[in-house]
Design a protein around this nucleic acid. Structure first.
Lengths: 358, 358
DNA sequence: AAAAAGTGTGCAATCGTTCCCAAAAACGTC
DNA sequence: GACGTTTTTGGGAACGATTGCACACTTTTT
């Protein structure tokens, strides 16, 4: 007897939300569950009268369809997975805002995961998301990732995937990227036009698409102004600047060449590099002109100030999401894929404020 | 007929992952689904032999239990919801990292939502999370939120909730906060000790617990040094600095009092205020000493540099998650609640670098 | 040798929805 | 009024997992 009471208490704790179900509505209205279900989904078979009855009652008891049950039945979850290296990175958080803006409109929910630039973590996260039957995946590869077989197999099994920012080659699906070549070109050219001649390039892991594209832009700008490209002026960071030691070493190796400018190819690296410069060589930090990719919304506060290449992050998230949803909702397998290239914006260093006053 | 074919194609596209189910294993091994289920969960009733057999086969076919089906049956999802105002804020992204570090260890998944400081959005998100049967909720209230009735009713229905950072009064549950009084006191005292006497205070909406606590710390520090508290030196920002105009106006209203120091009470406001100062009054920006709450990891790059109060964000996430999970897994309703108060850290302005060189 | 206890397994209900299929009701038509 | 049509509804089987209960079968106890 005692045990029963306890069990009931416990059950009632677990039976979290006594939200009414379709069954309850059916019972209350003397209808079958199928009728109620159809009425709620506004199917043509159900008479207007019944629909009104059901809808009114559902409204009254504040009925909410249980998404879990629906997911199980329909084998989809109305949610899309996102993998970025870290949300603390402004670029990615802006992308996520873009993704959400579209997803919520279309009644999808998003689930965010961070790879922290680790390919092991990335794989773990992706597989976890897949097992929760996300309907599609939006992913920017970690800087460590080289082997994308696991993505391929998921994709082959029917999981729609759209890549953004850091995209793989040889993977036939939609991709959304910034015009990395042009962004890099513009930034480098800007350094050259402000009189710099020894321009170093600090960049991410060589695996990444963005690394290669931006390197090309850098080289093209040098070439245009007949400046010799020197491989020793290029430093790669395998971990994308996740460890400050990585950046300090890179800076240490670059400084002996006396660069008068540095072009940096990613958000994390840009801020990390300035930090490393200030820490290890405060005297030269403000003598080197810096131009780098970054979407930090605090860039105006930085000292030394810098020229930044801003990616259209929000828009990138929007476009990627639209493409993904179109794949998810496609009636037949999609076979034509797009690579959307979005223009970057060059925000030049504010000489008047940044370097004069402080 | 045609329709049938079409339906089949469509169905097969939807039948995304032909992951093997318990049923498949049962069939292949000539066992019943119950036996397989029990074997996989390592129940005592099943013989070692059978267990080995099942486990080996499950491994072979790479069996993954379907979390959706499990959620439906068990009425829980092994996932916890997080609501923050925005992930772009370093403080919150660090909290999230802390949350994840514990949650993943304990086999919980996390779902992140942003309120963008809007109470409407907050409510929407919470209710969406609840309908996806999250097992518990971690929330920092938006600066707009005053009415928390909807949280109360969810809580009454059995949803465990733990508040962090921005916590309500009159809500009996676990809470994790920073020692806001002391953090504010220390920061203000630091300004006073560096010789400032007219110290303004820029802060968040009055609704927030952190606003009140930090104001008290500010007042206490003034009192200790016999500096008169002047209400006109305190400016509240209803939207937590989400709109830059809000900050520019606040700055404009404060400057006429010629403050020689400002104590700012939140991350977003701190960066926003410096930005506004530089934009509207570049000449005085570096003449006013600034001390503010911020967890930005870029603070060393700022100019003017500032003294910052850092919250133990990562730890806050960890503690909150542990408390939440203890509530979720409690066998009987929890009735004793804790308010954990974590110490902040004062990081003093780096005079040598920040203001001299640039 | 019979009864009791202990093992290992299977059946079937359940969670909340959806949807195929059939059945009932309503309607026309001759 | 009997017979097709069309419209509206209900029954019941999924989806994949968990679990109480019953059933065999073996071992121990009396």
């Amino acid at each position: 007897m005692k045990r029963d009471i306890f069990c009931n208490l416990y059950a009632s704790r677990k039976m979290r939300f006594e939200t009414s179900t379709i069954k309850d509505i059916a019972k209350a209205l003397g209808l079958s569950t199928s009728t109620v279900s159809r009425a709620l989904r506004d199917r043509y078979e159900i008479s207007e009268e019944t629909k009104k009855l059901v809808l009114a009652y559902a409204e009254k008891v504040n009925y909410r369809a249980n998404p879990i049950a629906r997911s199980l039945k329909e084998r989809r979850s109305y949610s899309i997975g996102i993998i970025v290296s870290e949300i603390a990175n402004n670029f990615f958080s802006q992308v996520i805002n873009g993704i959400e803006s579209i997803a919520y409109d279309r009644d999808y929910h998003v689930i965010i995961s961070q790879s922290h630039e680790s390919c092991k973590q990335e794989k773990l996260n992706v597989e976890h998301l897949a097992s929760r039957s996300i309907d599609g995946l939006l992913i920017a590869l970690s800087s460590e990732t080289q082997d994308i077989e696991y993505l391929r197999s998921l994709y082959a099994k029917g999981l729609p995937i759209v890549f953004f920012d850091r995209v793989p080659e040889n993977f036939e699906t939609h991709k959304v990227i910034a015009n990395n070549f042009k962004g890099a070109f513009d930034a480098t050219e800007h350094l050259i036009l402000s009189g710099k001649r020894t321009i170093a390039h600090l960049t991410n892991s060589e695996n990444l698409s963005i690394t290669r594209e931006r390197l090309k832009g850098y080289q093209a700008a040098l070439a245009k102004y007949n400046i010799e490209f020197k491989a020793e002026l290029v430093k790669y960071c395998q971990h994308g600047g996740m460890h400050s030691i990585e950046l300090e070493e890179a800076v240490k190796e670059l400084l002996p060449f006396n660069p008068d400018g540095i072009f940096i190819s990613s958000d994390r690296l840009t801020t990390g590099c300035i930090m490393a410069l200030k820490k290890t060589n405060p005297g030269v930090a403000h003598k080197i002109a810096i131009a780098g990719f970054t979407n930090s919304n605090l860039v105006e506060l930085f000292s030394p100030s810098l020229t930044s290449v801003k990616q259209p992050a929000f828009e990138m998230g929007q476009v990627a999401t639209e493409l993904l949803i179109s794949m998810i909702e496609a009636k037949r397998p999609v076979t034509e894929f797009e690579v959307r290239v979005l223009d970057t914006e060059l925000v030049k260093m504010q000489k008047t404020l940044g370097n004069r006053f402080l």
